[in-house]
Nucleic acid binder design. Structure first.
Lengths: 231, 231
DNA sequence: CGGCGATGTAACGAGGCTGTCATTTGTTCT
DNA sequence: AGAACAAATGACAGCCTCGTTACATCGCCG
């Protein structure tokens, strides 16, 4: 099972996180400060790192940079107080994969951690989303964020792109609206299932040859949706 | 159906949560204080607990700890005012699975609750059904929700799929109509046993080579049905 | 062999689910 | 601050599904 490295100085949080992740099935290692964390990261090769920004000695941001420079593929989730992340850009500069502000729910931290692990493990396991995909008359380039149907350029919004990517990553498998809400919309916003229908409709109208008779974005009545790339 | 225990002293919130969860299909029990909540938790064995941190008498945090020490697998979602969880440590020490700050949206609470239930129940109940199954001329793929008989694709409805899955999970064993109604249809709806006959007939017509002479979905006269995968 | 209960089958209607549009809300850019 | 776009919500119609009912058939038992 995956190993998690927790870099945190507060013993109470250490204990709490240890219990939390252990019950989730992870192997947990704890480091009390930045130097110890770096050493543990190099020796343990954890599947992910949970890093508190407030650490004695070395600043958490330097720890994060060091980890990322040494093994860029190890996902790092940062714990921080609200005031510390007034600027989200800072975190991106650090190279952190995600961050959670206090107070946070255990579920949210675990979810973001697992999402981060999933993201970084995907390219390794080979099921990586190709940068360029084509199905039917549609050509998609997730690098340039350019999409076209039958050669005609189509503009997609951010949500539509995320939804399309999720569909492509789960091609030929049925996904429920709840799964879409959790994985595409995220666990912090809770729209209605109607919203999902609307976004799917938008994708159909923009990408399907005949939006009224969808070929790629199929409805599974009473279950959810399924994306099929077709021939 | 799942039962939810609400530990909350404010009658207005009691009423609101009761209505909210009832419409979501849960059975709701309400406790007014911590002691009552603990007792109800032990006797009712709810699928999840919604716990207010501000309670008369016993502090909510102690109630949470008690619940978690008594049955660690019961998910607990904490309701709290913002100021009460200024320190993230408290929440983690409590062992709560998630938290929602007041004022909260009913949808968000429900979503987090269901997520918590799903997460704790998944490993327990075990998705023992293989993703792909074949028997006789039939091939079933429960991931893509695609089914075929003799190579010809067959469209199954949501209920038919659930029924088929239940049959496969209980292969070579006799199941009564009452068992099917309880496990496939659930405790919230009370159809006639003839409904079961109809759905079984649908499965036979769609999957059996000769629906009039069923091989896989056999009738056990006066008892129920039995699914045999055949050779 | 005949009666009776249980089961197979088909048709109908209510209810739920989904597609779609219109409106409101939120966000970003100027 | 205002405009423009995206996203979310609500409303409504159409369709599909499921549950019920009625009738035909089958199987058990005397």
């Amino acid at each position: 099972m995956s190993a998690i490295l927790v870099v945190e100085d507060d013993p109470r949080i250490q204990k709490a996180l240890h219990r939390q992740f252990t019950t989730e099935g992870f192997t947990v290692h704890v480091a009390g400060d930045g130097a110890e964390g770096l050493a543990a990261c190099k020796s343990l090769r954890p599947a992910a790192v949970v890093l508190d920004l407030m650490l004695p000695g070395m600043p958490g941001r330097d720890v994060c940079k060091a980890i990322k420079s040494w093994s860029p593929n190890t996902p790092v989730v940062v714990l921080s107080a609200v005031s510390e992340v007034a600027d989200k850009v800072l975190l991106l500069e650090l190279g952190a994969d995600d961050y959670v502000t206090k107070p946070f729910s255990p579920r949210e931290l675990t979810a973001r951690l697992q999402a981060a692990i999933r993201r970084t493990q995907r390219p390794a396991s080979g099921s990586a989303t190709a940068v360029q995909v084509s199905f039917g008359l549609v050509a998609a380039d997730f690098s340039a964020m350019e999409f076209s149907r039958d050669g005609v350029p189509v503009a997609l919004t951010a949500n539509e792109i995320k939804l399309l990517r999720y569909f492509i990553e789960h091609a030929d498998k049925v996904v429920t609206r709840e799964e879409l809400l959790n994985d595409v919309w995220g666990y912090t916003s809770y729209p209605t299932t109607r919203t999902v229908d609307n976004q799917v409709m938008k994708l159909r109208q923009k990408l399907e040859a005949d939006p009224a008779r969808p070929v790629h974005f199929r409805t599974m009545h009473g279950i959810g949706y399924k994306f099929v790339s077709g021939t």
